[in-house]
Every structure is written in C-alpha cells, then in structure tokens.
C-alpha cells in the first residue's frame, strides 16, 4: 500500500503529471505575456520523453558514481515529500507521515544532489554553478526558517495535520498580521528554492551556459527536470498547508493557482540577480522583516 502511495498516488506519478501541467501553465502564460503562442498542452511530457531517448554523455574527469546517482536520489527524495504532503490531503490518518521540519529537510536534498552532482562533473563552470547553488540555499534558508517559526509559535505544533486542524478552527495563519508577512516572504524564498528568475543564479544561461546543469544530458537531465516539475507542485501546496489552510475543498485549487500565477509573474517581471545581491537581499532585507513577523507572532498578532 505504501508503495502505491509513494509511486502512483499521491507520490511520484500523480505529482509528476500535475507538475507537468503546472509547468505547461507556466510556459503558456509566459508566452502570452511575451506575445508568443506558447507550447501545446503535452509539451512538458514530450520534453521528458525526448530526454529519455537521448544518449548520455559523461565528462571524462567526473566522479562517475556521484555524478550519476545524484539526479536519481534527488527525484527519489522529492517523491517522499510528495507522498507526505499528498497523504495529508487524501489520507491523513495513514501510518506513514512526516512533519514540517522533516519536509523542509527532505526538500533540501534536491539542492544537495545538484551541488554534489555538478561538483562531481569536473567542469569549472558547473563547479561555479554548485558554489552559487550552495550560497543561494544559504541565503534563502535563513529567511525561510524564520518565517516557518511563525506558525510554530502560533500553534506549538509541527505536524502538518495539526497545523491544518488549527487553521480549520481558527482561520488561516496568513489571515493574521504576522502570518501574512511571513507568508509573503516565504513566497519569495520559494521562488529561490524553485530556482526561478530572479534566482536562477546557479544556471545563469547567459554566463555559465547552464552552470550546474551544464554536463547533464539525456535521462540524467530528465530526472532533474522531473524533480523540477514535482517541486512546482509540492512547494506551493506545502506552503498552503502551513499558511493558508485548511485545504479540503475545491477552493484550494484556486489558492494553488493563485500561488502559481504569483510565481510566474515574479519570474516574468524581474531580471536575474547577482549572487551577492541575492545573499544581501535575503539576509539584510528580508530576514529582519521576518524577525519582525516573529515578534508580532509572540505578541499574538
């Protein structure tokens, strides 16, 4: 049973398909903003299929084991988060579950795999990409955790299911002053976690030619792409569960779409930051605001 949850629904397969659709919405909307036609509905899946029939090239100076294992582990760990987040919606009483801290730590693994994998490629550009990815993780992690402390202070709970119950009784956490500040900052951090513009610094097509992904090709790149699609679903739903619950009706889909549109708009209206700017913005700009939200939460606002 657990394998079904993990591999099919709500784990890997379901999230992958939803992620593909979300990715299509993203690309279509972006195209419309730029006055283009945009891809057909199945384009994200065509992309994946194509990656899985292309040959793999492996750089000669790479550390092969790490280079090849990273994408697969990244995709396996994201599937666990998908299972946990999804099970909280469809079958919250099932014996396998996880809490907020577990989920955020598991969501760190894809970044970690990218850093290790691209560091193992033996290419200077991908090493620079790896270092940027690590710095990006550092920069958003501080503000992200600070914001996540707000629901913890309000509820003294870290179980996702208890957080949702709390919100079902007392209204969404984002409806309070501290909650809304924390939620907005978390959305910006989410943009960085997804690696979307303005935080696509590790890939930086124009200067690093794909940076962290430069040496990846074929199915290995495919696994990273699948991970990205899945993250596009998991992260917003995860944040909704924490800040904008309860998620039990069809209205929740609208909530998700709102978040998705916010992501797309941020992506299309901002230029890429330099890594130094990103660290500065997140540490010296957003973190103090997040601390203010904690103070407000302690005061009960």
């Amino acid at each position: 049973m657990i394998l079904f949850y993990y591999l099919v629904f709500p784990g890997f397969l379901a999230t992958f398909i939803l992620g593909g659709i979300a990715s299509w919405i993203e690309r279509k909307l972006t195209a419309r903003i730029q006055a283009r036609v945009g891809p057909p509905f199945l384009q994200p899946f065509y992309d994946i299929r194509k990656l899985f029939i292309k040959e793999v090239t492996i750089p000669e100076n790479s550390v092969r084991s790490i280079f090849m294992a990273s994408p697969i582990i990244s995709f396996a760990s994201v599937s666990i988060v998908a299972t946990i987040v999804g099970l909280n919606l469809v079958n919250p009483n099932y014996s396998f579950n996880g809490d907020l801290i577990v989920c955020v730590y598991l969501l760190l693994i894809p970044s970690l795999c990218l850093i290790l994998g691209s560091g193992a490629a033996g290419n200077p550009l991908s090493s620079i990409g790896a270092s940027r990815e690590m710095k990006l993780v550092l920069s958003y992690e501080l503000a992200f955790w600070t914001c996540l402390a707000v629901p913890m202070i309000k509820t003294n709970e870290i179980r996702l299911i208890s957080l949702m119950e709390f919100q079902a009784q007392n209204g969404a956490i984002a409806s309070s002053l501290s909650g809304i500040i924390a939620f907005i900052i978390t959305i910006i951090c989410m943009q960085a976690k997804l690696g979307k513009v303005p935080f696509d610094i590790p890939e930086a097509e124009t200067e690093l030619a794909g940076g962290a992904y430069i040496e990846y090709s074929g199915p290995l790149l495919g696994f990273f792409k699948i991970t990205q699609y899945m993250m596009l679903v998991i992260l917003p739903v995860f944040l909704l569960q924490i800040f904008w619950g309860p998620i039990n009706s069809w209205v929740s889909i609208l909530k998700y779409l709102v978040l998705l549109v916010v992501i797309i708009l941020l992506e299309n209206t901002n230029p890429r930051l330099k890594i130094k700017q990103a660290v500065k913005t997140l540490w010296f700009g957003l973190f103090p605001v997040a601390v203010v939200s904690i103070i407000l939460a302690v005061l009960g606002l």
Binding site: Y6, I53, P59, N123
Partner: peptide, 30 residues
C-alpha cells in the same frame, strides 16, 4: 523513508535501464 528512498532509486534505475541509453564519455564542455 529509507525504504521509500531505496524504492525510488530502484525505480529510477529501472526507468534508466528500460530506456537503454548509449553512454558516451566526452571531454568537459566550456
């Protein structure tokens, strides 16, 4: 979680194996 990660990795290798990809070693591209 460990069982699931292993299951995921196995699935990954199965997908990878099924696609029967040619592997080519190349110099790094910069």
């Amino acid at each position: 979680a460990a069982i699931l990660i292993i299951a995921g990795v196995v699935l990954g290798f199965i997908i990878y194996g099924v696609s029967r990809i040619k592997v080519r070693v190349t110099p790094e591209f910069i």
